[in-house]
Computed example of a mutant assay.
Amino acid sequence: MPLGTLDRSPPPFFKQGPSALSKLMVCSALALFLMVADARFRIAQPLRAAVATALYPLEWVAMRPVLGLRFVGTYFESLQGAQASEAAARRKLAQQSLRANQVEELEIENGRLRKLLELRERIGTRAQAAEVLYDAADPYSRKVIIDRGLAQGIAPGSPVVDESGVLGQVTRVHPLVSEVTLVIDREQAIPVLNARTGSRSLAYGDPSGQGGALELRYMPGNADVQVGDLLTTSGVDGVYPPGLPVAKVAKVERRADSGFARIECAPQAMVQGAKHVMVITPLSAELPQRPPPEDAAATPRKGQRK
């Protein structure tokens, strides 16, 4: 084809189209116009409302899994918090219960100690407080161990009382501890006085060996003994001070085939759970000692010259 026949004129405008810069400027101006018009006259508000209404079901469906996961997480967090609060409340309740029990126990112990002090003042003899450590290992006897011994001046045969009455007698003394045989031991006997009638007798430990009671032996079948009579120490043995509560008559059996009555007594002291006790100096130790024979011989009698 000859070169003269080629068309060298540029293409028309509608075939070439606007340039990219022109499109950018036109779109920017249109956007700016729409923003100003929407801000001034809210021309896009109906369109926005229609689009929001059309998209609401899709948004609701899309948010269900998110809300479900959020609810599950909140549930487990609240469950853990509730469990932690419950555990803390239970611990606090247990601590308060323990403190309440301790306060109650201290009040009971304080009352017993006050009664022991009152008993010590009423007795008028030397005495010292002691604490029961544990029961003796012998299962066939009724004995306890206290925390006083030779180092504290405890002597064998010393009476031991609690706030309610006579508990027993010291039968063995060690350097730092002592063994106390309770009044309910079957090998133990104590002279008693019936506070109602004034009659004297002997109270022995439970002959069955099971403990928990005393028995008045060799009492005539017609003896004036009634249920509820208070038995106190008579003081004739030189060991127990007179007037200490020992037991109360619990049962009286008068049998026709025997000349003696069977009388069971309940001890006044806490033979099964004593904690604080008082060790009393025996009456024999309080009495003045007799002078030696040589001193008695050297002492001139009345009317005798030296």
Rank of each mutant, 00 (worst) to 15 (best):
A129R: 09
A130H: 10
V132C: 11
V132A: 12
L133V: 15
L133Y: 07
L133D: 08
D135Y: 02
D135M: 06
D135L: 05
A137Y: 00
A137H: 00
A137K: 11
D138M: 01
D138H: 01
P139F: 00
P139T: 07
Y140G: 13
S141Y: 03
S141D: 03
R142T: 01
R142D: 02
R142V: 00
R142P: 01
R142F: 02
K143S: 13
K143M: 12
V144C: 14
V144Q: 14
I145N: 07
I145L: 12
I146T: 05
I146Q: 07
I146D: 07
I146L: 06
R148C: 04
G149V: 07
G149P: 10
L150D: 14
L150H: 10
L150W: 14
L150A: 13
L150V: 09
A151T: 14
Q152E: 15
Q152Y: 04
Q152I: 02
Q152C: 08
G153H: 02
G153R: 01
I154E: 07
A155L: 13
P156L: 04
P156T: 00
S158N: 09
S158R: 13
P159A: 11
P159V: 03
P159H: 11
V161L: 14
D162H: 05
E163V: 07
E163A: 04
V166T: 09
V166D: 09
V166E: 07
L167P: 11
L167I: 01
Q169G: 01
V170A: 12
V170L: 10
V170M: 10
P175V: 07
